[in-house]
Design a protein around this nucleic acid. Structure first.
Lengths: 244, 244
DNA sequence: CGTAAATTTGAAATTAATCAAGATGGGTGG
DNA sequence: CCACCCATCTTGATTAATTTCAAATTTACG
């Protein structure tokens, strides 16, 4: 595990060119650098609770967090999987709209909300980037409605694996279509993200494995031997730009 | 029907204080006024097709439009119902991500995209309002995931009627809990918005009518005799601010 | 290595989809 | 102005998919 010290300098940050600071010039980075603070959250721990005051906003640096809402009778829907470079929280809003939970160990780059709002007003490169990211997130959330509203269980799992392949996957040297990634969510969380039960999620993972669309090693490593085959299962005709 | 002339002046516009221009000062409105143009679309007509160049962005002034995506085998998901004051399109994007269709007669206040982008850069009141609206839309899209992922057919219908009640409903004089609105979507469109079949949508509407949660007059008028009863059906504990 | 959590698998029950007629109502032309 | 017609909506019966209930099995970790 790398020392936290490695991340103190924005220039060395792994999400430097994808996060909300992506468009910043070196002098603008310094302004952000002054108010940022890192926060390490252990697996499964809550980061924010829905309804509480939004004191901070943050970028995910490493790990995965989930946004979720739970109905009174316990049904839970995960409505966002936040991966490195994703932005959590909203300026100008007083309260958090969703529960935010660490799906595994998470590192956040946090900003006190009021201070971040001040920067937004003064730094067009930050507000432009935030608008752009928010519009992308909105498109992605609307794309996800197709998965939840119209796709069968097998297709939902395929679509989710495709999403993770694109965001987390590393191609095998010499075979760009063979992708490996580490699954950041449990079966229960996958089910909650896809509007399924954990049994159905497990069964469909097994089915995709039986059919050769994925391979697994241990609990977390997933290998997609042929990304195009997975795209076909997920009814995904696009190049991936639509999911970001 | 009011003459289109009535809308030529932004100051008289029905969505003046809710649309993307809400924060504008009179002098800023003039800048928008110079590049706007109204467009009337007949019921059922396409407004934009997914994938085509985004030449314009627009605000819905009257009527209702839907954003949708259709899979190759014909399954369709409506992933946004755009009502008066909602903003359609995204600055900086070259192509439209979804099909946009008039659910009934629609009036749009359109802006040539490039010209609108120029205004965004020069007018913080417009870009701030657009960011705020986009963040609200994102929260609403994520709230909708709970409906699509975790709610039973009856709850989905109730949640949708609640959404329309809040956006379109007029309270009965003397009884603020008794709401009337005009349903802008066909049963098929309701089904496509909720991830159901039109038969299931129809059956659940009938069930809610039988159970006294709604009344109907003709094909389009819906009356909600008691909004709180509908909220209970929709598992909605909030005050509606979360859906906007 | 033992253990508890996570996952897999099986069988029965339930919900919604599909297949199939009818009924309703808004609009139009006689 | 009214009757007819077509699109839309409703309702019914059957089928298919997913959930629910219930054990086994595996895996990561102390």
């Amino acid at each position: 595990m790398p020392s936290p010290k490695l991340r103190e300098n924005c220039a060395d940050c792994p999400i430097r060119y994808r996060a909300v600071c992506a468009y910043c010039e070196p002098d603008e980075l310094e302004v952000l650098e002054r108010i940022k603070s890192y926060s390490e959250i252990a697996s499964g721990q809550p980061i924010f609770f829905a309804g509480e005051p939004m004191t901070h906003v943050a970028s995910v640096v490493t790990g995965a967090a989930v946004l979720s809402r739970t109905l009174e009778d316990g049904r839970r829907q995960i409505n966002g999987v936040m991966l490195p470079s994703d932005f959590i929280g909203r300026p100008w809003r007083e309260t958090i709209p969703f529960d935010v939970t660490a799906a595994g160990p998470v590192t956040l780059c946090r900003f006190e909300r009021k201070a971040f709002e001040a920067i937004l007003k003064e730094t067009p490169h930050v507000s432009e980037r935030l608008l752009s990211m928010t519009l992308d997130d909105l498109d992605a959330a609307r794309d996800w409605a197709v998965v939840l509203g119209r796709m069968a269980a097998r297709e939902r799992i395929a679509a989710f694996l495709l999403f993770l392949s694109r965001r987390l996957g590393k191609p095998t040297p010499g075979n760009a279509q063979r992708i490996t990634f580490s699954m950041p969510l449990t079966r229960e969380a996958i089910a909650d993200a896809l509007g399924l039960t954990l049994e159905t999620a497990s069964r469909q993972m097994s089915a995709l494995r039986r059919d050769g669309l994925i391979e697994t090693e241990g609990r977390s490593t997933v290998i997609v031997p042929d990304l195009t085959a997975l795209q076909d299962e997920a009814q995904d005709d696009a190049d991936g730009s639509d999911i970001l």
